[in-house]
């Protein structure tokens, strides 16, 4: 049980995001944060199938948001968090562009690191989001990876 009720928000959008603006939002939640951990995912320019020019990300409008909001609750049970922000982009994204932002503030660093990783592992393995890579050799749906599943299972996800 936690004494904290963190201020959480998730946005699924086609628009790019500003890390500075998100960080400002997290700081604006106040409290007595002693740590902020953030993760930003980018579109890789190459993969097992060769050069990747862009990706297309598909979501399940409604369920994607609600399932991520549910994992915030789970994270808040495990760690004393002050604020959480997640932005995940959808649509066509070019190589090098930002895909995902996870930002977590907490009293101490270990909780911020752990919750940030926990939320990312959830996004990789449970949240309804799908990536298609568009390369010089064609287009293909990204396959789920065992290493991501194992990472999620560590948390009991």
């Amino acid at each position: 049980m936690t004494a904290f009720q963190p201020d959480c928000a998730v946005v699924i959008t086609r628009e790019d995001f500003s890390q500075d603006a998100l960080q400002a939002e997290i700081f604006a939640c106040g409290g007595s944060a002693g740590a902020l951990a953030t993760f930003v995912g980018l579109v890789r320019g190459a993969g097992p199938n060769g050069v990747i020019e862009a990706i297309e990300v598909e979501s399940y409008p409604g369920m994607t948001e609600s399932s991520i909001a549910a994992i915030f609750e789970e994270a808040a049970q495990r760690w004393s968090l002050l604020a959480v922000r997640v932005v995940h982009r959808v649509g066509r994204l070019e190589a090098g562009e930002q895909i995902v932002y996870v930002g977590v503030s907490s009293l101490h660093r270990r909780e911020a690191f752990a919750a940030c990783e926990f939320i990312m592992d959830y996004l990789k393995t449970r949240a309804p989001l799908w990536k298609k890579e568009l390369g010089t050799g064609g287009a293909w749906w990204v396959e789920a990876r065992d290493t991501d599943t194992e990472a999620a299972e560590r948390w009991g996800l």
Binding site: G41, Y60, M63, K124, L129, W130, W141, V142, E143, A144
Partner: peptide, 10 residues
């Protein structure tokens, strides 16, 4: 009801 493949977000 929705049917979908294993997810690959993040």
């Amino acid at each position: 009801v929705a049917f979908y493949p294993p997810v690959t977000g993040g």
